[in-house]
Design a protein around this nucleic acid. Structure first.
Lengths: 147, 147
DNA sequence: AGCATATGGTTGTTTATGCAACTATTTAAA
DNA sequence: TTTAAATAGTTGCATAAACAACCATATGCT
């Protein structure tokens, strides 16, 4: 049993994830500044399709920690923006395979550079070993709550 | 200049704040399970009012890292639920002082216990010094992006 | 005093989330 | 084989976020 005590403001910011909110906002601003008409949430879906195109919506749910309705609507919006296309699976008529368009492929490199740039700004002055430890703790937290 | 390299999935989860999303979801489930008709976002506003009642909406913006429209609507919903009351300031007619109701005072202890319980579950098996370091890193990230 | 500017708050619009209820297809079991 | 249960996806509803435009009050400057 853990008896670690958070101070007042810390508990709040640990629960609300102040830091990651700031990171996402910064990245979104970069997207906007570069005229990319793309939300962070939409980018997070593309992110997984760039790794492997043609994932099903259910696979995107698992990859992005979102529920099915959320993915349905994100794919709706991505399709409306001409970034992906739903392709019904041959084997299983229930499944939609989500495929990237040419336009989405063009966004890959640029947005990844902006994401890396954002993280560099975020982690400026933090030693690599502390980043590693922090990642470990956050992964452990995630595992504790989901496994 | 930092040349730390994230691995594929790590970059994504660092930006999206996987861990804090999981914490907030767990806490929300606890609220629901206890029949508390309260969102985490609403709780986060009450949290700052429990520390100091009668804050203005602008002060709540600063405390919760939200913009003015977000606070307007959160206060709308809290008022509709009978948890807070807007009281126009005497000195400055532009300002609304937000005051807790009796009902909101009753929620304080219970919800804080649930929040602490959630963090205990989240941080199970993580040594205290690692938690401290992780907090420091996240604070540094926040400062890097907002100062 | 009078006007420009800053500050506090609200409203409209678009996008996203969580939950429950629903349809369609597939798989498993009686 | 027919029926029940699981799986994939969609829709409706309530809540929330970001941004821009807006109104009202206060402050500062000339």
């Amino acid at each position: 049993m853990l008896d670690y005590q958070f101070k007042k403001g810390e508990l709040y910011s640990f629960i609300t994830g102040k830091a990651s909110i700031a990171i996402a906002r910064r990245l979104q601003k970069k997207f906007n500044a570069h005229g990319l008409n793309l939300t962070i949430e939409q980018w997070s879906v593309l992110y997984h399709l760039w790794k492997e195109d043609g994932k099903s919506q259910q696979e995107l749910c698992n990859a992005t920690f979102r529920d099915k309705p959320s993915i349905t609507r994100l794919v709706d919006n991505l399709e409306r923006s001409g970034l992906v296309k739903r392709v019904p699976s041959e084997n299983d008529k229930r499944i939609n395979k989500i495929h990237l368009t040419e336009h989405a492929l063009l966004l890959h490199e640029q947005t990844m550079l902006l994401a890396e740039e954002t993280l560099k700004e975020a982690l400026e002055g933090v030693p690599a070993e502390q980043i590693d430890l922090c990642k470990e703790v956050l992964q452990k937290v995630y595992d504790n709550l989901t496994l």
